[in-house]
Amino acid sequence: MTSGFFFKFNRVGAWILMLFLVTPALISIPVSLTPKRFLSMPKGELSLRHFEKLFTSEQWLSSFFQSGVIAVSTSLLATFLGTICAIGLWRVSSKLSELVRAFLLLPLIIPQIISAMAFYRLWIPLGLLDSYAGLIIAHTILAAPMVLITVSASLASFDPKLEQASKNLGASNWTTMHRVILPSIKPGVFAGALFAFILSWDEIVVTLFISKYSVYTLPRRMWNGIRENTDPTVAAAAVVLIAITIIAFMIFVILSRRNTRSKDA
């Protein structure tokens, strides 16, 4: 049967493509272990000196710290704004609110370079260039739509009758929100917070435009390292980033598993 053959052929092809997607990133592991001072594959002996440098260099450590502060703040702010907005849109649900929802998703799809231009343009007169606040606000605007999406997905499976029941039983708006709605959309809120964190932690294009000296995030320092293309410390940083990605991914999988389990129950 020709389709059976095609079937197998396509499946093998798909697996090869999967390897093509994942393996290239792994090259930074051997390169980060090279004993030499320049980017190279290690021959024979391995060394951890570049990791040592990464974790003792003041510059790299400050970048880790700054990225951490910015990503955590962005994640908190975007999660708060995105969640209440999603709940609002869910409660209004009119033609207009759907239009507003579509509009609020725009920062996700408008090319980053245009977002970067926009923030750069406005941050100059506002004096927000090269400051924590500037980066956090910009990243929040880019990340809040992610939260909006994940929370809205959770809300879609939430039974509105529960809200009514809570109100009929005499609970105030605040109590209903706090004790009925929020607990049932928790998985969506956490997933959104995680996405927002990752987005900010990785963000480079907007960061290139609106940061300069005093705020120097991890992607920014990696970008410089990549452009200079000599220092294996970048490879060590890449390995650390991959590890963080995998940890974040596992958290996400556990969260979404718990989500589906609670839905089944």
Partner: peptide, 21 residues
């Protein structure tokens, strides 16, 4: 899983990898 992991790996890490490859 492989697809989502590759989706999540930082663009800078991936570009850097291609640079070395």
């Amino acid at each position: 899983t492989l697809l989502l992991v590759s989706f999540w790996i930082s663009i800078l890490v991936r570009t850097f990898s291609w640079l070395m490859l």
